[in-house]
Design a binder for these strands. Sequence first.
RNA 1: GGACCGGUAGUUCAGUUCUGGUUAGAACGCCGCCCUGUCACGGCGGAGGUCGCGGGUUCGAGCCCCGUCCGGUCCGCCA
Length: 587
Amino acid sequence: MNSKIFNLSNLDEGKTVTVYGWVEKVRDHGGVIFLDLRKDLEIIQVVIEPSEKEIFSVAENIKNEFVIEVSGLVRKRPKGTENIKMSTGEVEVCANKLNIFSKSKPLPFQLDEYSNAGEEIRLKYRYLDLRRPEMHENLIMRSEVSNSVRNFLVNKGFIDIDTPMMTKATPEGARDFLIPSRVNKGKFYALPQSPQLFKQLLMVSGFSKYFQIAKCFRDEDTRKDRQPEFTQIDIEMSFTSCEEIMNISENLIIELFKNILNVDLKRFPKITHKESMEKYGTDKPDLRNPIILHDVKDLFLDSDFKVFKDPANDKKSKLVAMKLKKDISRGQIDEYTKYVGNFGAKGLAYIKVNDVSDLKKGLQSPIVKFLSEKELESLVKKLDLKNGEVVFFGAGNKKIVFDSMGALRQKLAEDFDLIDKTSWKPLWITDFPMFDETLEGALTPSHHPFTKSLSTLDLLEKSPHQAISEAYDLVLNGFELGGGSMRIHDAEEQRKIFSILGISDEEAKQKFGFFLEALEYGCPPHGGIAFGLDRIVMLMANEDSIRDVIAFPKTQSALCLMTEAPDKISNAELEDLSIKSTFEEIE
RNA sequence: GGACCGGUAGUUCAGUUCUGGUUAGAACGCCGCCCUGUCACGGCGGAGGUCGCGGGUUCGAGCCCCGUCCGGUCCGCCA
């Protein structure tokens, strides 16, 4: 069957055709009936005239979303009745045969462009929601992206290899989804959080260029850009370098945007993790946002205002300011104060600049009275403050200041419409710290425990906080599209990292023994990257959530409203798997 | 685990949050009748509601209070 059956080229005037599809719309004039017939993304108007007595009485009972087949003559519409809004609007099919394949009940929600159904009902009847052109187009774009990725990588000599979905639980990282084993009682497989170890083992196997469009599973709470199951474009290469991987990745993304959106992306700038945090307060900055953070520690080293002076003199603290060129109300400031509270900030200091020529009366703020004229003057100079601007301050614990100011920076830009929604601002973040510190003081890998460090083993052991990793993230418009690193290819080095992370030799052997052993049989230096396919398509399709580019997504509470998964299972099934539930239902 | 917003007809929403009070409204959809050139067709008529669920306060609750479920955004979490 030809999916382009409605194409104007197939609708030559005078030709007899058979068309089929869903009834998009019925317009029954009593004497003549018009049906809009939809298939794929095309629509053609069918006319049923009363002279066709047999089919006319059938047509009178046709409702929206019936699936029908119509044969008839293609003819030009009468002068003045053409519809310029339709690609097929100059012609119509005058039916002389009509067959109903399938009837439809009235739909639980309307599919037309004027209805605005909520997500709950759309997800329950997802198969209907997907009939809408917007959703259809998103999934078509997703297919085009996958296809483009595949072509690009295959042409570059990459080999597509798939890896197991039933694998071994990993101790680090996210929570695992587990699969009980019936045959091996009391034991569990896990769904992969990513193909990480397998792709590294494929390097050991001598496949120097690997890729896979892989499903990954992480049992963590969802966000608009995170689902418990998601798709990665997974890439790994041996005998390579950060530069080579970033270069290939960049070309891949550039090609995607060219092929699918016909957008020419410029080369991606690179900034270090440190620079990103200090300028934007985040490791995934939206460069469309013009606001930047300024370090103002040096202005307040000897201040009488303790709230500024203390962090200004403390290495573990930050004192930053950012300005907004907009008028802002007291109520809005209260809102933003509440907002930064979410990130642990105790307050939000601000100064409204009414008149820069008068530092006493021209600056409006509860904190101005604590600041000296000299301090205010240097602040005005440093931030180049102008009348009508407002300055916000973040002071205190480094993490809290970056988290709260970074988030506020983005919120202000969105609320005050400072972001050019039509532009694309990709960038690389490099030189990540090797480790992060938990609140309890333990070290965790900032990327993953197989990441190679630029620092010497000696430094790694003595001052792990200063160690820098050979890792890189690709960020686009404030979303982390992908990340990767060079990997450790030496068993000794890998053991050392495990030990710094507080993983005992015994545990390392039990969880990663197979992997450590593989590193002892000739492992090439290697590295790679993984991209979030869902996020890439979400941005390209201009959607706000990856749910809109996934055919059958989960809700925020990880439910599928259509199938009602997950669901209870019978005791018999549990018994078969040697599992007993400890969950007690409250009646 | 936590914060906030929402849940009223099939759908999208209104229902004077502080200030509870006869019969809970609108639009679209649906059903019936009419209509020969519409394309968000039109006209006339009609049906349709456990106000998410449970409890409480009150003479009286869609509205107030407590709990709970569902959807969303965010914090935590996401090597």
